Amino acid sequence: MKTLVVLDYGSGNLRSAQRALERIGAQVSVTADLEAARAADGLVVPGVGAFAACMEGLVGIGGGAVIAERVSVGRPVLGICVGMQVLFDAGVEHGVETEGLGVLRGRVEPLHAPVLPHMGWNTVAAPAGSTLFAGLDAATRFYFVHSYAVHETDGLVATTVHGEPFVAAVEHGPVSATQFHPEKSGDAGATLLENWLAAL
């Protein structure tokens, strides 16, 4: 059985992520233990709320260094929502720029849309060759809650539109990340998590 760590740095829907991963057959621990985070087959980085607060929490437990270390040696990391956003170079909220972890190229910036936050179900245009979206058709919907987004990055990029196009998910080397919440996306989210788990 694959072992997963959901990193507890004071932000994120930790238990819902844990339950969703356990339902697909993973052995999951929710912990701030950095040695466990290093050793796990897969590391899940959740996140809700503000970019700056999430970064402060990550830095506070030394989590950023462990994430960067895993990426540098090709060990899988999955970022969810703000846990995805902190993987990028920087985030801009209310005119204030905060440095991110920089394991993915790009900036998290305000989403330009008539209604914010973006809250609800969207289809996602998945790239050819995607591991995460294997077996999911174009009509599949995922659950989003956010007001900030990345508009451009490297790797296999899935996109959606709310006011403007933005990055819904990215796969780049050992890093996978979703702006939406797979743990709140029902069967579609379960399939995506199963696909990630199977690739570990």
Rank of each mutant, 00 (worst) to 15 (best):
residue 1 M to Y: 04
residue 2 K to R: 13
residue 3 T to S: 13
residue 4 L to I: 15
residue 6 V to E: 03
residue 9 Y to D: 03
residue 10 G to Q: 08
residue 12 G to T: 15
residue 12 G to I: 14
residue 14 L to T: 13
residue 15 R to Y: 12
residue 16 S to P: 08
residue 20 A to L: 02
residue 20 A to N: 01
residue 21 L to Q: 04
residue 21 L to V: 10
residue 23 R to A: 14
residue 23 R to M: 07
residue 24 I to R: 00
residue 28 V to E: 07
residue 30 V to D: 05
residue 32 A to D: 14
residue 33 D to Y: 07
residue 33 D to S: 10
residue 33 D to A: 10
residue 34 L to N: 08
residue 40 A to N: 03
residue 44 V to E: 09
residue 45 V to W: 04
residue 45 V to S: 08
residue 45 V to P: 00
residue 48 V to A: 13
residue 50 A to M: 13
residue 51 F to T: 11
residue 51 F to C: 06
residue 53 A to V: 15
residue 54 C to L: 13
residue 56 E to D: 11
residue 62 G to S: 11
residue 63 G to P: 00
residue 64 G to M: 13
residue 70 R to V: 15
residue 71 V to D: 06
residue 72 S to R: 13
residue 73 V to L: 12
residue 75 R to Q: 14
residue 77 V to I: 15
residue 78 L to F: 11
residue 78 L to A: 08
residue 83 G to E: 07
residue 83 G to Y: 04
residue 85 Q to V: 11
residue 87 L to V: 14
residue 88 F to D: 06
residue 90 A to D: 00
residue 93 E to C: 12
residue 95 G to W: 10
residue 98 T to A: 11
residue 98 T to I: 11
residue 100 G to S: 08
residue 103 V to M: 13
residue 106 G to T: 02
residue 106 G to S: 07
residue 107 R to D: 00
residue 108 V to T: 10
residue 109 E to N: 10
residue 115 V to K: 05
residue 115 V to Q: 08
residue 116 L to D: 01
residue 116 L to Y: 01
residue 116 L to E: 03
residue 120 G to E: 06
residue 124 V to E: 05
residue 125 A to R: 09
residue 125 A to H: 05
residue 127 P to E: 14
residue 127 P to Q: 13
residue 128 A to H: 11
residue 129 G to C: 12
residue 132 L to R: 02
residue 133 F to Q: 07
residue 142 F to C: 09
residue 143 Y to W: 05
residue 144 F to T: 05
residue 145 V to H: 05
residue 149 A to Q: 00
residue 150 V to M: 00
residue 154 D to K: 04
residue 156 L to C: 09
residue 158 A to H: 03
residue 163 G to T: 01
residue 165 P to I: 04
residue 166 F to E: 00
residue 167 V to R: 02
residue 168 A to S: 01
residue 169 A to W: 02
residue 169 A to V: 07
residue 171 E to N: 09
residue 172 H to K: 13
residue 172 H to N: 13
residue 173 G to E: 13
residue 173 G to F: 11
residue 176 S to K: 09
residue 179 Q to V: 03
residue 182 P to W: 00
residue 184 K to D: 02
residue 186 G to C: 06
residue 187 D to F: 09
residue 187 D to H: 10
residue 190 A to L: 12
residue 193 L to A: 04
residue 193 L to H: 04
residue 195 N to S: 08
residue 196 W to I: 12
residue 199 A to W: 07
